[in-house]
């Protein structure tokens, strides 16, 4: 029942935790985002995630972003690292 996943980051303040799981064959890319600054920056974070996922050719995965107020470059770095780890893992 439990699936393999890859992650990057932490739940420390000003950081974010990114978790990537494999989806069932045929399912689309899904991005789930929760943030303490969701109202102000939520859309922007999701936009960044889609951008990086497209660049890295990620589909058929779910990317969970649990943000605790990280800066733009940290968000990018964490997502990229999680994707790299996921590619090695699966």
């Amino acid at each position: 029942m439990e699936k393999r996943n890859a992650k990057a980051g932490s739940l420390e303040s000003s950081d974010l935790l990114v978790v990537i799981d494999e989806k069932k064959p045929g399912e689309e890319l899904e991005i789930v985002m929760h943030s303490i600054v969701e109202k102000q920056y939520g859309d922007r974070i999701v936009e960044i995630a889609y951008e990086i996922a497209a660049l890295k050719g990620m589909d058929n995965v779910r990317i969970l972003i649990q943000d605790r107020g990280a800066l733009d470059y940290a968000i990018r770095a964490r997502i990229e690292t999680a994707i790299e780890r996921f590619k090695k893992e699966v």
Partner: peptide
């Protein structure tokens, strides 16, 4: 508590509990 619980979440994820 927060750092400890954050680490616990990460460890649970590593064990496949998402």
């Amino acid at each position: 508590a927060a750092p400890l619980l954050g680490e616990t979440v990460r460890e649970m994820l590593s064990r496949g509990h998402s």
